[in-house]
Write a protein that binds this DNA or RNA. Structure first.
Lengths: 209, 209
DNA sequence: TCCCCTCCTGCACCGGCGGTACAGTTTTGA
DNA sequence: TCAAAACTGTACCGCCGGTGCAGGAGGGGA
């Protein structure tokens, strides 16, 4: 039936916004049901407890996150065949997407879960871990493609460089939110882009990608 | 009087560890008093409410954080006069300090507060903001010293590069904690070091700092 | 048309927690 | 020794997460 899914989605929408602002512990089920206009019984019909809500929330967030990266880098691939240019263009597109967010990035659920770990079960922690590993694989794959064509100027570990993309994103979100400077995150992504460009592009030529 | 301060410190120690694992919302006052062996009345004698505990916790954390950076970079300055070498050495020392942490980095309170913002008052949010701005000023100062001697290979904004240090640290902590790979954070710092080195060091010479 | 299944509502209740209030007690340093 | 500091003990409040269960609306298939 349709109606159930719709309500479930509405709860998840409200919950996601609340959790990103106040953390899981700071978000009460009572406030969620108040905002969605559902009763407590209705809530517990959809989610057995808070842990299951968190699970659903995290899974949905990660799926959406992956979809966004897929879109961005496939758009980049449509525009160039060169793996380095694809990556640089992808970072550019990402930074544009981030700076277009009206109120800045709302926060990353992976980080929220990370700073709340002890109260969740192993399954949710594993989900979170796998999400970060998926980022590592995604960016690592692209970086390996680049390295087949462009020898890096300095010896680097691919996984560590791939992780740096995640680091700068996660850290940039924290900085942006804390400083209340929405643009900081986008700037950090461009800074990372400069790094990647410098690492792989020959000294002589410096075309804009 | 001494005794009061001692108890206060013990509460803060227990609270800091708990908050970094479970967030503010996930940490109950009852568990804190159980672990410190104090009564509820005793707790509220030291802190008016949870918000004041958070305030004290954050201020202490930030002070300690600043002290650590002061020590690291003053040690680096003792070993070399060159501003670039000082910075690179400082990052190296920092990464060593981080990889020596027995159970990995426990987490950053600034990030915790960032992901819990809405439940705190303006004062605590301002404190958090100022902490990040202090990082920006600290690293920015060092980078400006570098740029007076070494022209950067690519045009960069100093504040944004300074922020990148904070980004990589905050992001590295999230990755390290989520992946349960304590070493990831230290590796990320070294990765950043590679970036800074590449940005400022002339192409020809590549001495190890 | 009837009935079943999904999708809820309403209500009563529990225990934990943040917080208040306040009286009394021990500890400590001048 | 004495006052202030640093607590303890007790009783209480309201919110919240969570349980249990009975019942009802509404739509889709037989």
């Amino acid at each position: 039936m349709r109606k159930g899914e719709e309500t479930r989605t509405r709860i998840l929408d409200v919950a996601e916004a609340a959790v990103l602002q106040k953390g899981f512990g700071g978000t009460s089920i009572e406030e969620l049901i108040a905002e969605t206009g559902i009763t407590k019984s209705g809530f517990f019909y959809h989610f057995r407890d808070k842990n299951e809500l968190a699970k659903a929330l995290l899974n949905r967030y990660i799926e959406n996150d992956e979809r966004i990266y897929d879109e961005i880098f496939s758009r980049a691939r449509d525009l160039t065949d060169d793996p380095l240019q694809t990556f640089l263009l992808g970072l550019k597109l990402l930074s544009e997407l981030l700076s277009d967010l009206p109120n800045g990035h709302p926060g990353c659920l992976v980080a929220t879960v990370c700073y709340y770990e002890r109260l969740f079960d192993r399954e949710i922690q594993e989900t979170n871990r796998n999400a970060v590993l998926a980022w590592r694989r995604r960016f690592g794959r692209m970086l390996r493609d680049i390295m087949e064509v462009y020898p890096p100027r300095e010896p680097i570990n691919v996984d560590q460089l791939a992780d740096m993309v995640s680091s700068v994103l996660e850290g940039g979100i924290v900085l942006s939110k804390t400083l209340k400077e929405p643009n900081t995150l986008a700037e950090q992504v461009l800074m990372l882009r400069t790094f990647v460009k410098m690492l792989f592009l020959p000294v002589a030529e410096m075309p804009r990608a």
